[in-house]
Design a protein around this nucleic acid. Structure first.
Lengths: 118, 118
DNA sequence: CGGTATCCCACAGGATACTG
DNA sequence: CAGTATCCTGTGGGATACCG
């Protein structure tokens, strides 16, 4: 059961498909950033918008809807006055922890590499 | 040194930045797919194009250039006749292994989840 | 084969204004 | 605050043709 020295072509072809599957739901410019913001305990619409630099209300609204449809986010309305809306990550969103971790670790490493090169 | 139960807000803010850094170079529709294809030992232009479903020559050409600029790919010309061009992943591209692995694992898991739900 | 050149357009997404 | 509506632009990227 030795592994990962050099994956076979078939293994890699399926990797290509799996990567595509992943990118289909969490790809794009904003999805992961919004999720990370939610993990940061930004739960309110405007909080999220402020923390995700550059996203517009219209786009954030759309992204949150997609994330909800795909089971990552739950929209909770607290019927007080004034009404408070809260976005929560679902347990399913936690399955992304590994992805987020390796990606942000890599991003940090890459940034450091660039800095040290200049 | 316990960790990762609930990251602090600051840790997460920097995660947001790191994720953005990562997405800046490997985000977008094609970058990771092209890299995976190269790992699959597709080294020739047309091989890559055939394996990455849907990519056009123009776009693949542009992606390969960006990947080269960012240090993931090396373009090697073998001066035979006819000339053969080969694209190779650099050692630096290997630093993406973890990202690719978690992402494709997650993609496979997600696909299975969707299938079992229908 | 390994691309480049052109042309074109759908659509992601920004800006701004507005609403309950 | 939590969005929606409108309008508009940029550009990612497809199609096709062509070249050394």
């Amino acid at each position: 059961m030795h592994e990962t020295l050099q994956p076979t072509s078939n293994e890699c072809t399926s990797r290509l498909a799996s990567i595509s599957d992943a990118l289909y739901v969490i790809g794009g410019k904003w999805k992961l950033r919004v999720i990370v913001s939610l993990r940061e305990n930004n739960k309110r619409f405007n909080e999220i918008q402020r923390s995700v630099e550059g996203i517009s209300a219209r786009v954030l609204s759309a992204e949150l809807k997609e994330l909800e449809i795909n089971g990552f986010v739950k929209r909770v309305v607290h019927p007080q006055t004034p009404v408070v809306v809260e976005y929560q990550l679902t347990p399913y969103a936690d399955t992304l922890s590994g992805v987020l971790e390796t990606l942000s670790d890599w991003g940090a490493m890459h940034r450091n590499k660039l800095r040290s090169e200049r």
